[in-house]
């Protein structure tokens, strides 16, 4: 079966699988995703994910369920630990699956999606936005390096001055490029 079907199926199954069957499903699903692309599991090294691991595997057994296990003088619940382990396994399947699916979302697919949603001129607006990108960077730098701007301390005034500067720049840039195209 093609990956484009199998990965969404893994995602949906991981979302709805009952707790009793999850231990049989998650390990093969993780193995499959690992063989598909090992880089999908880079999130395992992230601090935010490790924080969830600590909360679910250490803190959760201390506060949820019947305390039936003693470690280093602290009472833990094995049911809480088991529950946390399932939650971690679930995330280890769900996150790479979504990551893989988001990689396949190209500009063409988004374009057709937004066209279906009835968003007109989406492609033209996106093209023009990408053209404005370097201009905005350049003009913002120019704005903040000008001496008189440094005297403005009111955040509303500063934002308004910057915005007015960018609006004028964007309009003159568009007029200029249009003129060049005509010529």
């Amino acid at each position: 079966m093609k990956n484009k079907y199998l990965v969404p199926i893994i995602f949906i199954v991981a979302l709805f699988i009952p707790l009793d069957f999850s231990f049989y499903f998650f390990p093969p699903a993780i193995l499959y995703l690992m063989f598909l692309d090992i880089h999908l599991f880079c999130f395992l090294r992230r601090i935010s994910f490790l924080l969830f691991v600590i909360i679910l595997l250490i803190v959760q057994p201390m506060v949820i369920g019947e305390k039936d296990f003693l470690l280093l003088g602290i009472k833990f619940s094995t049911s809480g630990f088991y529950n946390g382990l399932i939650m971690i396994f679930r995330a280890v399947v769900m996150i790479p699956a979504i990551n893989y699916l988001s990689k396949t979302a190209g500009r063409k697919k988004l374009q057709s999606l937004f066209a279906k949603l009835g968003l007109k001129n989406y492609d033209e607006i996106l093209d023009h936005s990408q053209k404005l990108f370097p201009l905005l960077k350049e003009k913002t730098k120019e704005f903040f390096t000008k001496a008189e701007r440094k005297k403005i301390f009111n955040p509303i005034e500063l934002s308004a001055q910057l915005l007015a500067f960018l609006i004028k720049a964007a309009h003159s840039y568009t007029a200029k490029t249009k003129e060049e195209n005509v010529l």
């Binding site: 607006i125 023009h128 936005s129 990108f133 905005l136 609006i167």
Partner: peptide, 20 residues
């Protein structure tokens, strides 16, 4: 139904600004 030139530029500008 159709957006004019000013609206087009402003939409692209604010979209680019937010994206940036």
């Amino acid at each position: 139904k159709e957006i004019d030139q000013n609206e087009f530029i402003s939409t692209a500008l604010f979209g680019a600004l937010w994206g940036l």
